[in-house]
Amino acid sequence: MMVRRAVVVSGRVQGVAFRNHTQRTALELGVRGWVRNLPNGDVEGCFEGEDAAVRQLVDWCRRGPASARVDRLTEREERHTGEFGSFEIRY
């Protein structure tokens, strides 16, 4: 079953390669979508793919890379659109 989830990750998540690691993990899992830094210091992402793979990516975001400190992750389910061709870092 294909799903779409949007997340916002708060904590020490900018300046620690969070976006690069998220992209690498998404590509390994076959998840499509994007990730970007927000002006307030959070990281936002939109993930589409098989339910199990998207859940794995969201769970990974709850921890992040070793240099990150995730204080909170908010998640919402959205309607799957299939609009993404790959997984990109947005600027």
Rank of each mutant, 00 (worst) to 15 (best):
N40I: 09
G15Y: 15
R79P: 13
V54G: 00
Y91V: 04
R62T: 10
A53D: 13
F47L: 06
N40Q: 11
V16N: 03
V13E: 01
D59K: 11
R19W: 04
V43R: 03
F87H: 00
V16A: 02
N37G: 02
R4T: 06
T22N: 01
N37L: 06
C61F: 03
D71I: 14
P39I: 03
L27K: 12
E77L: 15
C61R: 01
F84H: 06
N37Y: 05
R76T: 08
V35P: 00
T81A: 07
R24K: 15
V43F: 01
P39S: 10
L29F: 11
R36C: 12
W34A: 08
V3N: 02
N40F: 06
V7A: 05
L57K: 01
W34K: 05
L27D: 07
I89F: 03
W34L: 06
C61S: 02
N20R: 15
V16T: 08
L38M: 14
A53M: 13
L57M: 02
E50T: 06
F18R: 01
Y91E: 12
V7D: 02
G11S: 05
R90Q: 08
V54Y: 04
E83I: 09
R72P: 02
G15V: 09
V3E: 04
E77W: 13
P39F: 03
Q23Y: 05
D71L: 14
A66D: 14
G82H: 07
M2L: 11
C46R: 13
H21Y: 15
R63N: 10
A26K: 05
V8N: 09
G41F: 04
V8G: 04
D59V: 11
G82E: 03
R62N: 13
D51F: 15
R32E: 02
R12G: 06
M1C: 06
R62C: 09
I89R: 02
E83D: 10
D51C: 10
M2S: 10
E88G: 08
R12Q: 11
R62E: 10
M1Q: 14
D51W: 14
P39H: 07
R5Y: 14
D42P: 02
R24T: 15
G64D: 06
G15P: 07
V13S: 00
V35W: 00
V31P: 00
E50V: 11
G30L: 10
E78G: 08
R72V: 08
F84M: 05
C61A: 12
E50A: 07
T25L: 11
R90S: 07
G41M: 06
R24F: 13
L73D: 01
A17I: 12
E44N: 04
R76L: 10
V31R: 04
L38N: 09
G45S: 09
G64N: 05
W34Y: 04
E44L: 09
G41N: 05
Q56N: 12
E83T: 10
D59N: 14
A52F: 15
A68D: 07
R76H: 13
E48I: 12
R12M: 11
T74S: 10
P65V: 05
G49A: 13
G11H: 12
G64V: 08
L73P: 01
E88Y: 03
N40P: 04
V7Y: 04
R76N: 07
